[in-house]
Design a protein around this nucleic acid. Structure first.
Lengths: 207, 207
DNA sequence: TGCTGATACGAGTTCCTGCTCGCTTTCAAC
DNA sequence: GTTGAAAGCGAGCAGGAACTCGTATCAGCA
């Protein structure tokens, strides 16, 4: 049996605030000290709380990290989704893709340290969170593709979406975390060219 | 002062073999138990050696991991370079790119566990190894691009190489580590289409 | 106001890690 | 055969991590 992720449901307002403080502290420690420096004592100290209190609400250290990552993922997803939505009215595909790419880059660039910490966790096999996240974005893109192309695709849209999403994601992450040889605008232009070049080739019924 | 990476130069044949056993054991433990399970005791046990003997040749645990990662990187680089070389004679760009992609995927797929362990280390900021590796592949691609295009590029070849290399690399890693919705051959075709679509668009002097 | 369960505390327990050091064994050179 | 440096050993040390538990405080209610 694994430890319970949550020990107690906070009932009073006070304890709900404590949970928030713990999560915020976890995020802060992750940003300041990285994955290595994320110890329960550090988190407790940063939250202005005793180590024991952590375990009132979280089964173990991992559960805290999980919560932090989940919220961060949700935040990112919200912004990306927002960019998609804000873009449905944009006729020009180039402009649409460009905007989405920029939204992603900007979202990621807000907390490079957090992104780095999360990226380190990402490649885990059984990580449902990342998989679920990617799948939702896949679905988003898939439906967009189908809508824009009128359903006339040579390949299953899911496959195309998988490639495009991972391409854009990893390029954006790389752009934020490494020091790339191009600027933000230029990056967006290039990625847009990359994506559209591929989509044009793949979506057109007649190659 | 940081610990010395190597303590003693092995003089006798016996000790040189010990170093090899340590590195091999480190690799094996990394594959079997992942980054978490890579403890000095485990490595020593796997090498059939006492913990103390590790420190005759390696300054600390990190130095062992470094050596394992270095050798793995070298191995990968060699195979990728080999694919590039074996491909210079191939006229058809589609076929050339396809072969290189397949070589990369196959190389990565040989030890998914090792790849996962290494990928986890990768996103570290100050990691020179990965940066150096990527830079060498960049250079390789850059020169290939310049050679094939006759020097007539709209963009600095280095920028193009950065994008292409990171795209292919991360797609290949994703293909091996996640469970992707396409097979090996199909994957190679799609990545080739993606890359060539971009290169065609970017390299042609007249769009 | 006094009672009760929820909340918070934090020193302490347990465990396991990386690493050391004094000793023993091996072996090449003389 | 002798010898001394190289190689190897492995119990054990120091440290720090995650986590516990007996105690104290607090908020809301009769």
């Amino acid at each position: 049996m694994t430890a319970p992720r949550r020990r107690r449901q906070p009932r009073q307002e006070r304890s709900r605030a404590t949970v928030e403080r713990i999560v915020a502290a976890g995020r802060a420690v992750l940003i300041e000290r990285g994955t290595e420096g994320l110890t329960t004592n550090h988190v407790a100290a940063a939250a202005g709380i005793s180590p024991g209190s952590l375990y009132q609400y979280f089964g173990d250290k991992e559960a805290i990290l999980d919560e932090v990552v989940t919220r961060y993922s949700d935040e990112l997803e919200e912004r990306v989704t927002g960019a998609f939505v804000a873009t449905v009215a944009v006729r020009d595909p180039t402009e649409a893709v460009r905007r989405i790419v920029l939204a992603l880059v900007d979202a990621l660039a807000e907390h490079p340290a957090l992104l780095r910490a999360v990226a380190q966790r990402m490649p885990r096999a059984g990580d449902d969170r990342r998989a679920a996240f990617a799948r939702r974005v896949d679905a988003l893109l898939t439906s967009t593709l189908v809508a824009r192309s009128g359903g006339a695709t040579r390949y299953p849209a899911g496959t195309v979406a998988w490639l495009v999403v991972r391409t854009v994601e990893s390029l954006a992450v790389g752009f934020v975390l490494e020091d790339p040889p191009l600027g933000r605008e230029e990056f967006a232009d290039e990625v847009t060219a990359l994506v559209l070049g591929y989509l044009a080739r793949v979506l057109d019924p007649a190659p």
